[in-house]
Design a protein around this nucleic acid. Structure first.
Lengths: 170, 170
DNA sequence: AAAATGTGTCAATAGAGCTGACATATTTTT
DNA sequence: AAAAATATGTCAGCTCTATTGACACATTTT
């Protein structure tokens, strides 16, 4: 599954010519202390390709990955506040500010003062924002369906349970 | 599983007061065209927390996520070339250059001219590089083990199969 | 009245990535 | 031998995402 070429882990010249340079390691790192390197890499490759789909769409509108996250969660939970969004994305207010402003200026998201607490800025998608979120989710959904091809409902649940278990508990 | 507050999807004022502003959507995006938004979010949160462990270690040495990837793959496949690494990480040569240079200057990785093709720069970890890669993999491995807690071998295989299926085929 | 909260904004900075262009050494092809 | 291709390195300039710290404003809570 690794994308790089296997085998041919040639021992560097120094190791045979100069005994002092034993510091160079020619043996692949594996099975060290029961660490499963394969699944670590699988997660890396899976996620890398998973985000590549929306990334391609986003460059056309001049947006980036951060815009995707914001537009996704605001669509999933209309009325969420800026504080909710910061908590969800675990980024800082300043990081969010520019991205959110651009989405508001572009007409994908709007702010409404909270009905009870008027300090709050509740966030809602416009129809354009909803359309964008759906367009971004669609290729990701297709990729997931392909990965689950032929899988039972129990398998799907196992994968979801695993992914939930990967999260830091709060 | 969502980190943001559920419920209270209050309909914004405009929607009740001004019929012209129907553009604001108050309903959560879900079940649209059989898209499974939950697993999309699970992947996002799982990966976000998965990389947070090594990130915390790396800030201490002044390195970032890019250094992690490089040191990981060079340890997994000693003797890989710069071209192999670019292919694996799917980044450009220029992006890799700075990161690789820093790792070489810091003594974690060394370059050796290819024994057959002397244009090549084969990459090898030093012992310090191996130690770093292991230190970074360790908390990730613990997180994965926790997520697999009580899972059967078949479940582990199902998860791996799913992750493989998420990759773009080449 | 004072303190806390939710948000917005400013300035400065950093890490990671990009494109395009060009240089060098080496190997392969013609 | 000459030309083309390959592997790598490097330069300049750019973008996006994210950071910290500071401060301001309106509003709510104490």
């Amino acid at each position: 599954m690794l994308h790089y070429r296997k085998g041919n882990a040639t021992v560097p010249r120094q190791m045979s010519q100069n005994a002092a340079k034993t510091e160079l390691l020619g043996t692949p790192m594996q099975n060290a202390g029961s660490i499963d390197f394969e699944i670590i890499e699988l997660l890396f490759f899976a996620y890398r390709d998973f985000v590549s789909d929306p990334d391609q769409i986003l460059v056309k509108s001049g947006f980036g990955r951060a815009h995707h996250r914001v537009v996704h969660f605001v669509n999933r939970e209309p009325g969420m506040t800026v504080a909710d969004l910061l908590e969800t994305l675990q980024i800082t207010k300043q990081s969010l500010a520019r991205v959110l402003k651009q989405l508001i200026d572009s007409g994908y998201i709007r702010q409404v003062a909270g009905p009870e607490d008027r300090r709050q800025r509740k966030l809602y998608p416009t129809q354009a924002g909803r359309d964008l979120a759906l367009a971004l989710a669609e290729p990701q959904s297709r990729r997931i369906e392909r990965a689950f091809e032929g899988a039972s409902e129990a398998t799907r649940e196992s994968v979801k349970r695993f992914l939930r278990g990967m999260q830091t508990e709060k």
